[in-house]
Computed example of a mutant assay.
Amino acid sequence: MKIVITGASGQLGSELYELLVNDTEKECYFLDRKQLPLDQIMLIQDILAMYQPDLIIHAGAYTAVDKAEEEHETANLVNHLACEEIAQYCRLHGAKLIAISTDYVFDGNSAVPLSEDAPTAPINVYGQTKLAGERAIQKWCPESIIIRTSWVYSAYGKNFVKTMCRLMAERDQVNVINDQIGTPTYAKDLAMAILKIADASDWKAGIYNYSNEGEISWYDFAVAIRDFRSFDCQVKPIPTSAYPTPAQRPKYSLLDKSKIKATFDVAVPDWKLSLAKMLAEEIKN
């Protein structure tokens, strides 16, 4: 199987590289923003044609949530129009597509875990552009698989876990929001789930949710990080209103993982177990 992975230098792309780099049964091409500039949409199909993939794992995205409020055009190019080009390539050439989306397609007003068919109503530009990307993929490549995930972290790249570790080593106190509820996702767990789906004998198109198990706030997450690493730092809970940001965040975006577990027999570890595994790893960059 010949696979192209976009967003190769990101958290998920880096974890996929680690899992696939020594796989002799797959011919893998890891494309970062230099090899595949997702904001230059006129180039995308020609670049993909150079590799002639059987499967594209589209992990690349514009993920600067606050900056997207100002850079709407760039976010739309990367998160929406690039998805359209990739989906059109897959339709024209018979390639399969697994694309990564986000819990930010929801408005955050639910009180129960969100299923794949829950109403979408993004409240920021990032979520709007990701939802537009989902719709473009479904229009042009209805046989694709879209995986929505949330609160991604890894030993690679920039993320909440690494930021908290740095701040807690430097400060006596950190303030963390306690009224946004969801579940973190260890990028390595997501990468393993994606590869299990890619290797499945029965390809079942559609939208799927994947995050680790559990229901926590960012404050709960920060406390667990502190306790795992034994930092001498007070974690103070604060409401969202005390930490205004350019982009609104969903207050509740807990994802129901029943569908992906039942369809592909995918393992979904508890968030605490996955956090412990990540913190035991060497920080990569």
Rank of each mutant, 00 (worst) to 15 (best):
T183F: 02
A262R: 10
A276D: 05
L275S: 03
R171M: 14
E170K: 14
V161E: 04
D265H: 14
M278R: 03
T263Q: 04
D227Q: 15
G157M: 07
A187C: 04
D220G: 07
A200Y: 02
Y252M: 04
D179Y: 01
K162A: 15
Y243K: 14
N178H: 13
L279D: 03
M192A: 14
W271F: 09
I225T: 03
F221K: 02
S211T: 15
L190P: 02
C165M: 14
N159W: 03
I283Y: 08
P184L: 00
G206K: 06
L167F: 12
A222D: 00
D220T: 10
Q248L: 15
M278S: 11
D199M: 07
V223C: 11
I194N: 01
T263N: 08
F228C: 08
E282Y: 08
A155M: 06
I207V: 13
N178F: 10
I177F: 01
A276F: 05
V161T: 13
D202Y: 14
A280N: 11
P244G: 02
D202N: 14
I181Q: 09
M164K: 06
V223L: 11
L279G: 04
L275W: 11
V268P: 00
K259G: 06
L167M: 14
A187P: 01
I197S: 02
F160S: 04
